[in-house]
Every structure is written in structure tokens, then in C-alpha cells.
Amino acid sequence: MGAYKVKKIGIFYKDEPYLSEVAREIEKYLLKKGIEVYKNGDLEKISDGKDSVVLSLGGDGTFLGASRIAMNIGAAVLGINLGNLGFLTDVEGMDVFIAIEKLLKGEFTVEERLALTAIVNGEEALEFSGINDFVIMKHIEDKILKIDVAINGLKAGKFRCDGAVVSTATGSTAYALSVGGPVIAPQVNVYELSFIAPHKLSARPLVLGELDKLEIEIESQGNFVFLRDGLKVLDLKMFDRIEFRKNEKNLKIAHIRGKNFFEVLNKKFGWGS
């Protein structure tokens, strides 16, 4: 997807002194350029995301939060790495104003990626959008988690494990990678199911197509937790059922320069070194 004329810019960041100061400097710079600026709680006020970009100031966790908001309003998100790893971010902190100038000149591209929707027990109020992954896991003190897995309405198998990770291609380099899932190139519109400490050697990760619907039902007693992009959203119990499918909206990521996914994979994770 090509660039467009940016008229509105949102700034998303954690409420910390340094990040707040950076956000204020960016806001002053943009206002002098005649750009509408929205920060944190005001981002939802952006009426038309088609001419907007949300700047994420921080690391990958901040980027995920900014991405969910940007996706909801139809804007692209640009990650400014002011955190630690910065695998998902596009620009290093020292280059922030150079990047903004390129945005305003239209010198950027927009990449679209698949995101996920999870619905718990078919309740609309318990519907969540995920950028990286969803995780179902047991508490440390609880017994093993038993789950029943169905794909497109057909029973696929029963598994005993400590948890399950349902990940997008974007999230394939996060929790899913640590439990043995494959690295998936971000432009591939698939998602994957991986298991945490499974009790069968045959419980291997499974890659699903973008049109596939995955259902997981809990079949064991105990207290379980449901995470979205690394953050807890609710507790789960026996007989709870979670449906996963492609989100109706794609995540849009703005790139200032030709970012090579495999080069970043090598630099940040040492893949191929």
C-alpha cells in the first residue's frame, strides 16, 4: 500500500517523564507544521484514520497497544523505538524527527498484516482483537490444562498441556517462538496454534489459513487465565469455549525505509548467525 498525505498524527506512549517530554516536543513540532495532533486518550477522537498515522513511543509492548487503537480507527502505526528490544518498531529514537519529516513528505509505505479476533462463549461483550497473540494458560499451582480443539467445526484433537498460544505471523517471533512455533514472514496471511509444555510428542504447532476458524474448549477443572498480547483480559474455567478467527480489520504498519524483516530477525534474534 502506498503513502498518502498525512493530516493527523496521534502519539501513544506510557505516562513516564521522559516519554511525556518527547511527546510534547513532537506535538510542538507538528503543530508548527499545521498537523492535527492527538495524544493517548484522545486518539479515538480521530474521525478518519485514512489520512492519519499513530506514532508509538516506546518498545514492542507500547507498539502493540498503539496498534490496537490505530487498527480500530483505520490509521497506520509507526513504531519509534524508545524501549529495549524494539523488534516491531521501525525507527530508532534518535531519528524521530527525521522520520516525522519523511512522513509529512509522503516518503513512506504502508504494510497490511492479519490480526485476530477472539470471542469467549459466543458473547459479544467478550470479543477481543489481538495483534500478536492470545494465550490460554493454567496458574502455577493448578493441575494440567485439558483442551478440546476444533477447526472449522470439526473435532481436531484433545490436548493436555500447560497452555496454548494462538499467534499471528506478527506474533510468531514472540511467545509462540519460545514454545517451539515457526517464524512466519509477516506478509503471510496465516495464524498458528502452539502448545506450552504439551504432554504428547505429537502435539506440534499447527499453521492455519486466514479463513480457518479455530475453537478451543477447556475440559479440566481449575482456574485459567486468558491473555491478549501479553496482558490478562479475563479468567477462564471449565467448559469455557474460545473461538478464534481473522479480524475484520488489518493492522497497517507505516515504514519509513525499506525495512527487511529477515535482516531485523538476524540483528535482533541472531537468526542465521
Results as ranks from 00 to 15, higher is better:
V6F: 10
V22K: 12
D90F: 05
V110D: 12
I256M: 14
L82T: 00
V37R: 00
F63K: 01
I253K: 12
P205G: 08
L55M: 11
V6C: 14
S47L: 06
G130N: 05
T170Q: 00
M94P: 06
F63R: 01
V135A: 04
M137F: 06
F261V: 07
L57D: 01
L126K: 14
T170R: 01
D240Y: 05
L208V: 07
E127K: 15
Y175V: 02
L177K: 10
R241V: 05
R241T: 12
K237V: 12
A115D: 12
G74E: 14
A99M: 03
E27M: 06
K102S: 04
P186C: 09
E123P: 01
L154V: 14
Y4Q: 04
I69Q: 00
F134L: 00
F128Y: 15
A169T: 11
Q187R: 11
R257Y: 14
G258N: 15
K7I: 07
G272F: 07
G180R: 08
M137P: 00
R24E: 15
Q221G: 15
E107Y: 02
I218D: 10
G93D: 13
N266W: 11
E101N: 15
N40W: 03
F269T: 02
Y191E: 07
E248T: 05
F63P: 01
E16K: 13
N247M: 03
G86T: 07
I35Q: 09
A70E: 04
C161Q: 10
L227Q: 03
S172G: 13
L211R: 15
V166N: 02
E127N: 12
E44H: 09
M71K: 08
G34K: 10
A185K: 02
L193N: 08
D148P: 05
F128A: 08
K8L: 05
E27D: 13
V96F: 06
S220K: 06
G209V: 07
D212Q: 06
N250L: 06
K105V: 04
D142V: 05
G163I: 00
V135T: 06
E107I: 00
A174T: 09
F269N: 04
I80P: 03
A125T: 11
I35L: 11
Y13I: 01
L31H: 08
E124A: 14
L116G: 06
